[in-house]
């Protein structure tokens, strides 16, 4: 297990290195010098940046300086927000995105497992049909539409109640988090529900469930200890991609609900061509996602004994 984790970590570091390299060379292929773009860069920042990145030096040397800086966790200074370090921006705004994302993924995973198990239990009966219709809807409607409709719903709900139950946007209290997290997790929850359902139905035909029945175990024990436990495994395997989906989905939700998370910042940086912020957040997000996938794989190792001992 230790060797496995180590191998995965080494792989992850290589991936992050590749992302960083690709980002660096892509940025250097941008037509013209990024510092000479039409963005007003003060002489002070320009001098700072040139000193930091050694823009007058040969490309390879710049690349190694960039890698060395990045390895020390130094992502540079924002182009558009003078005197603001990219590190500070990430540190300040990622916390918010992470809180939103964790809530959304928890909601999606628990909901997916619950609804999926329920539909499998009530196969082809009313609860199954209703939930699967909603699931098909959830899979077919883009996330940003959910975000828009969610906000519209909040406006109408508050109007109907006569007081503000959920704020329409912004960040700060728990009530700010609930609707955006629900909206963000909805698509993933629909996907996980479907996966859980098909997994449950597949397990329902497994030989070992017949064995469990032949042992005369009570139905709920068969369900809990034999069917559910094995049916969850595929859901755990797709948690990694789900985290990536929720992370990118978060960009939209933060934009729509005016949440000051890193995702919104990132989209803004792209729209404003704030290159240092783009590079910094790109590498940061890349590292984060790679790390999360490794964490999920390790978790999977604990859930599935067959992986644990390989």
């Amino acid at each position: 297990m230790g060797r496995y984790i180590l191998r995965r970590l080494v792989q992850g570091v290589i991936t992050v290195w590749f992302i960083a390299t690709a980002t660096f060379f892509a940025m250097h292929n941008v037509p013209g010098d990024p510092l000479q773009s039409d963005k007003a860069v003060s002489a002070e920042i320009r001098a700072n940046l040139e000193a930091r990145y050694g823009l007058d030096k040969p490309l390879m040397e710049q690349y190694f300086i960039y890698l060395a800086n990045m390895a020390q966790g130094d992502f540079g200074i924002s182009f558009t927000q003078q005197n603001r370090e990219v590190n500070d921006i990430i540190a300040e705004h990622f916390r918010i995105s992470a809180a939103l994302g964790i809530l959304a993924i928890a909601f999606a995973a628990l909901g997916g497992i619950l609804w999926g198990a329920l539909t499998a239990l009530y196969r082809n009966r009313l609860p199954d049909i209703v939930i699967m219709l909603l699931v098909i809807l959830g899979i077919s409607v883009p996330g940003f539409v959910f975000a828009g409709l969610g906000q519209l719903g909040v406006v109408n709900l508050n109007a109907a109640l006569g007081f503000t139950l959920f704020p329409v946007g912004g960040w700060g209290t728990v009530s700010h988090m609930i609707v955006p997290a629900l909206v963000l997790g909805l698509g993933t929850m629909a996907f996980l529900t479907r996966l859980m359902r098909s997994s449950m139905l597949e397990i329902a035909n497994a030989d070992f469930l017949r064995t469990a029945r032949a042992k005369g175990l009570p139905a709920n024990r068969i369900f809990r200890k034999h069917q559910l436990r094995n049916a969850i495994l595929p859901v755990v395997t797709v948690l990694g991609p789900s985290i990536a989906a929720i992370t990118t989905g978060g960009f939209v939700v933060e934009l729509v609900f005016a949440i000051p998370g890193l995702g919104r910042y990132f989209v803004q940086a792209v729209q404003q061509s704030d290159y240092t912020v783009i590079m910094g957040t790109t590498v940061f997000y890349g590292a984060f996602l790679v790390f999360m996938v490794i964490v999920v794989d390790i978790i999977y190792g604990f859930v599935d004994p067959r992986v644990r001992l390989e």
Binding site: D207, F208, R210, R213, A214, K215, L217, H226, R229, P305
Partner: peptide
């Protein structure tokens, strides 16, 4: 319950007849 208590059963394919996570 009769199954498991009065009637024990074994099946054709032992590789798939046992719960892989227990």
């Amino acid at each position: 319950e009769v199954r498991g208590r009065e009637i024990g059963m074994i099946f054709q394919d032992p590789m798939t007849s046992l719960n892989p996570t227990m």
